[in-house]
Design a protein around this nucleic acid. Structure first.
Lengths: 359, 359
DNA sequence: CTGAAAGCGCTTACAG
DNA sequence: CTGAAAGCGCTTACAG
């Protein structure tokens, strides 16, 4: 087995034609059961691994998909990449990554580079405030159900609704919503859902972090302690990252969570279960989203050049709003007014205190 | 421009041979300056994009590299992926991702899948406690300089040394080091460096989180408040993730940072600059590490099958221990004993308190 | 059911 | 300096 065996090696070893071997391996052309078996056996014996390059050249399909996130450094990227890689791999596709380092028009360049590399289609998680135009190739967009041209996404609006209801159920009536970018579809949907839940029942205020930071510098305090003094009892952030920022700012200000106030996030990022108190959050069903995105993309790829009509986009979209899951952890608890700081409210669902032997 | 132009289209349009066009485009064969110019111009005019599949088939090189992290969900993955993608892309290579969802022997399977997909070489960031055997293809391993077979890595030991010195300079003499896995080369190097700094000057204790969690359940408290009561004034975690866990646990216990104790991390993960207090940490020079890993990999790929001798591995290794950078933020401050909780120590380098108009 | 042949787009010795 | 030809490994009508 000096160098890799190819179809000809198998054909020669068996005295048949490469066409027959090819048919036997692909299961396409009609080959007798018996011969098929013999061929596949020989292939295994020779350690045959098909050459993707050869196949790509003759079929015009690379069986590679491109994954583009405007900013690969986003903390959600690992979840996306893992789910997409898994779904693609199941379908026999590889995943090429593209990055634009957060630069807006580099997003388009990243997509083009992937296409030049031969990607059969592209999965895009677009940067907030951008839209993907026609790129001359199949695309699947994962953004928000409210985004025009969106292929599949979590139902961010209902996710917001659920987290809002959760806080209402705990008795909260004065809420501050924390977002980052006012031009993000995803964030606006989440905010919209939360507000809809509170409508007519409780009061909400909205903070956009990017606007505060534009005025006061990156990493500036959000002034949350002051808000608590004014009567706010809960904070709902549209991302665990901002929830974390809120929690630490409040804790540093001597406010107890969830004793004094509740804090919730979104996305179940890596630290949500690890911090103290652990973070109540909403999780996307990444595997399902990825599976649908990949399936959609592959069906586009396979219908390409065919006169077959694509399924009605609207139909797809309607069934492609994927429910989110509420994960209740310690950071949200029943509203108790403002107990003496440090006191643990009766409803507190924390773990037991550490004992010395744990250290 | 119905379908993409290829070499023959250019050749036909100009009445020359495809061989000449190929040579002109690659700059390899000697083609007259003038003809070269004309050909390249025509190529541009026709919107020629070379077919990677065709090239791959004839050269046997895909110009694609595989990137394997045992667990793609690791919070460092974005940094790695971004740096590797950038360096590879500069060198004309694409990056295919492989994942093993944290499963140990799936790591090998992920590597093999990438190779079957035609990757010319693989970059591996191995799971703690694993080693990469011969995979019959060029590999670059990014782990730790102390790992046998390591290609390039941050100088984790010196990074530990620096963070240790930083804490010593602040006056700390009683330190707890927080690690996750006792079988991780990276973590052991970091721990070793910190201990070396404290040797003969201060006292250190070591906690491995994975062992505590095995006994007390995932997400269990680390008992840090108790340690502070016993006189510990600083905590050095080998990852920002554990530093975050420590900070929130301490804050929840009413301990002020950096008023009462200092906390430091490693890796400058996404939240390090965002939490309150922001986190002092050590950052790897990912771009440099990625550039070296890619360069090493490509030189292996190009020398493959040549009688050319590879550079002495030891030589490579010696120059491939990349310094880390200390990033001092608010979570570490001068040792002041145990001031009244909530009091801000004089040396505190925090931002101003928020004013109401920030909200 | 099986095979001979052409072709996918490129590169690379080898002639001229 | 330029071109004709073979070949990389596969697939796909088309004959037989």
């Amino acid at each position: 087995m000096a160098s890799r065996a190819n179809l000809s090696d198998i054909a020669r070893a068996l005295g048949v034609s490469v066409a027959t071997v090819s048919n036997a391996m692909s299961g396409k052309g009609r080959v007798s059961q018996e011969l098929g078996r013999v061929i596949r056996e020989k292939a295994k014996e020779l350690g045959y691994v098909p050459s993707l390059a050869g196949r790509a050249l003759s079929t015009g399909r690379s069986h590679v998909l491109g994954l583009v996130l405007a900013d690969i450094a986003h903390p959600l990227f690992p979840q996306f990449a893992q789910a997409i890689e898994h779904a693609a791999s199941e379908a026999g596709y590889g995943v090429l990554i593209g990055d634009s380092r957060g630069d807006i028009d580099a997003q388009t360049r990243a997509i083009n580079r992937l296409i030049e590399r031969g990607a059969d289609g592209i999965i895009v998680v677009p940067r907030h405030g951008t839209r993907i135009g026609d790129i001359g190739r199949p695309v699947a967009v994962i953004d928000s159900p409210s985004t025009p041209g969106n292929t599949v996404a979590a139902d961010h609006w209902n996710g917001g609704m659920e987290i809002g209801r959760h806080l209402l159920d705990l008795g909260h009536r004065s809420l501050v919503i924390i977002g980052l970018h006012a031009d993000s579809n995803v964030q606006n949907d989440r905010v919209g859902g939360i507000r809809a839940a509170f409508a007519g029942i409780g009061k909400t205020r909205l903070i956009w972090i990017s606007e505060m930071e534009r005025r006061h510098g990156s990493g500036c305090p959000l002034g949350l302690v002051r808000l608590v003094e004014e009567g706010v009892t809960a904070f709902a952030a549209v991302s665990d990252l901002h929830a974390l920022r809120a929690i630490t700012e409040l804790q540093q200000g001597g406010i107890s969570i969830p004793g004094d106030v509740s804090v919730t996030g979104f996305d179940d990022l890596i630290w949500a279960g690890v911090i103290a108190p652990s973070l109540t959050t909403m999780r996307m069903d990444m595997d399902r989203i990825a599976a649908i995105a990949i399936a959609d993309l592959i069906s586009q790829i396979e219908q390409e050049g065919t006169d077959g009509v694509l399924p009605d986009p609207k139909t797809i979209r309607d069934q492609n709003s994927i429910p989110m899951e509420l994960i209740i952890r310690q950071s949200s608890g029943p509203m108790l007014g403002l107990p003496v700081s440090g006191e643990t409210p009766p409803g507190f669902r924390g773990s037991a205190s550490p004992t010395i032997d744990q250290v």
